[in-house]
């Protein structure tokens, strides 16, 4: 496993976990037809936590974080995001979605809009931000992900890494309190993985609450304050990264780590 660690030291001064609860999942279950994908999930995430979710393919990692902004419906249990309970009430769902940013494996930028328009669309239509202000904010975040000069191009003209950074900027423009990442680097070439991870590290340094599904164990070691291991729809083990990697408790975790780290 290539360790794509950032070469610079990480500034942990703002990476503080507060007592405020950001996400609370209680006894959550989900089925696809008769297939039990998520089984009795209990998880509390505090404001400012950086959580990495790992696990073999098909273990339900994507499904779990997609339940958090109601891209998938859960059938049992309770999910409270930022004080709002996820229910069938569309108002609640739209409120939660505007507070929670999501970054996808395949970027999902809007190909018919320029980079700038991609970033200003939701603030203008959902938050009713004036166009000028939305554009200023978009440029601010595009600078932050280091591609302000691409603002007037279309997504199809950018490299994968650049597109993923735009996707991150697009989410940030909504000023979310929580960011969800679903394998943000899995569709990228190695040299592009680093630029995206650097962006994510910066975000963590600013104290953003993050839930990342990723196979980048270097990132998990450096940035996460908690690693969650899932298998067959259940949370099998969770721990601080040091303990998780050096001293895994469950056999399934050991097996998974030995495969992914190639020991």
């Amino acid at each position: 496993m290539s360790e794509l660690m950032s070469d610079r030291a990480i500034d942990r001064s703002k990476m503080q976990v507060s007592d405020e609860v950001a996400i609370e999942i209680n006894g959550m279950n989900k089925w696809y037809g008769s297939f039990h994908v998520l089984r009795d999930i209990n998880l509390t995430v505090n404001q400012g936590e950086r959580i990495v979710i790992a696990g073999p393919s098909g273990s339900g990692k994507s499904t779990l974080i997609r339940c958090l902004n109601a891209l998938e419906e859960h059938q049992q249990g309770k999910i409270v995001v930022d004080g709002t309970e996820l229910s069938n009430d569309l108002k609640n769902i739209d409120k939660i979605r505007s507070e929670v940013g999501m970054v996808f494996q395949h970027f999902n930028l809007f190909p018919h809009l320029t980079i700038l328009e991609n970033c200003t669309l939701a603030p203008i239509w959902v938050r009713k931000t004036p166009k000028k202000e939305a554009e200023e904010r978009a440029m601010h975040f595009l600078e932050k992900v280091k591609i302000p000069e691409q603002a007037h191009k279309y997504p199809g003209m950018l490299s994968g890494g650049q597109q993923q950074r735009v996707a991150i900027a697009r989410s940030l423009c909504m000023m979310p309190r929580i960011m969800l990442f679903d394998e943000p680097t899995s569709a990228l070439d190695p040299e592009m993985i680093k630029e995206v991870l650097d962006t994510m590290i910066e975000l963590a340094e600013e104290g953003m609450t993050m839930l990342c599904v990723t196979h980048e164990m270097g990132f998990a070691r450096q940035v996460a304050n908690r690693v969650i291991f899932m298998d067959a729809g259940q949370i099998v083990e969770q721990n601080e990264p040091e303990e998780f990697f050096n001293n895994p408790k469950s056999d399934r975790t050991k097996l998974f780590l030995s495969q992914i780290l190639g020991h």
């Binding site: 902004n69 409120k95 979605r97 999501m102 996808f104 018919h112 669309l121 939701a122 959902v126 989410s171």
Partner: peptide, 25 residues
């Protein structure tokens, strides 16, 4: 499907998602 999901995850409601994202494409 990602286009629908991206529009949803940004908090656009159905008419907005259709008019701004889905139908133009």
């Amino acid at each position: 499907k990602g286009q629908y999901e991206a529009a949803d995850s940004l908090g656009l409601d159905y008419p907005q998602a259709m008019r701004l994202i889905i139908l133009p494409q």
